[in-house]
Amino acid sequence: MISLYYPATSPVHKLAAGIKVLLLLILGTVLFQVEQIEILVGVAVLVVSLYGVAKIPFKLAFGQLRPALYLLAIVFIAQIFISDLETAIFVVLRFAILILAASLVTLTTMMSDMIAALEKGLSLFQRWIPVAKVSLALSLTIRFIPVIGVITQEVREAQRVRGMERNLFAIFMPTIIRTLKMGTEIAEALDARSFDAEDEISTGKSKK
């Protein structure tokens, strides 16, 4: 499974996943209260220099912004017409900072650490959230993604024989039905191994 994680040893990488997400939430809230562009430029410099601290190559850092460039350009042009150049720069800069900061967290945190932090965070609310079930669902989904890819490939090959590989409906339907049947079997297998989802498992660990 490919993730967006960029491996390196740096203080940014070492910081606990939960703290990084918390800092990001604080930054996101504070940034929308700021009205002086000087502060915004300062924060931008800080975030960019954190990319340096985390030893992330420039190309990869810029790549985080690229998918949003189109939208940022539209916002920039729209802002020039409605207000002025300074507002346009301000709004676009704020977005760029948020996207870069959030991407920095993603690039420097391993997915397994992020999920562990998430489960830890959820367990604070275990009176309302069934943590064991959420954990099971998370790990099942990660496992299912390649399986669904395989099923889709098989269905496509089968439909190619019938000359229907261009018919989207003929690809979707068998894939979904086969996926659902597989799901029913997996659920029965889980129940047979007494993963009793009706139980409230308070330890936050799923029984296998």
């Binding site: 499974m1 490919i2 993730s3 967006l4 994680y5 997400v21 990001l24 996101g28 985080q64 998918p67 949003a68 939208l71 940022l72 916002v75 977005f95 948020l98 996207i99 870069l100 900061a101 959030a102 991407s103 967290v105 993603t106 690039l107 945190t109 997915m111 992020m114 999920i115 998430l118 669902a137 998370l138 989904t141 990660i142 993604i145």
Partner: peptide
Amino acid sequence: VLFLVLVAVGLPLLAGGRGGLGVFSGAS
């Protein structure tokens, strides 16, 4: 919700291989 959580924790699952927390702080 589950899908978006996996996107947020850093799997590039959105169309075009996008993912991570950054996609939520954009305008869309």
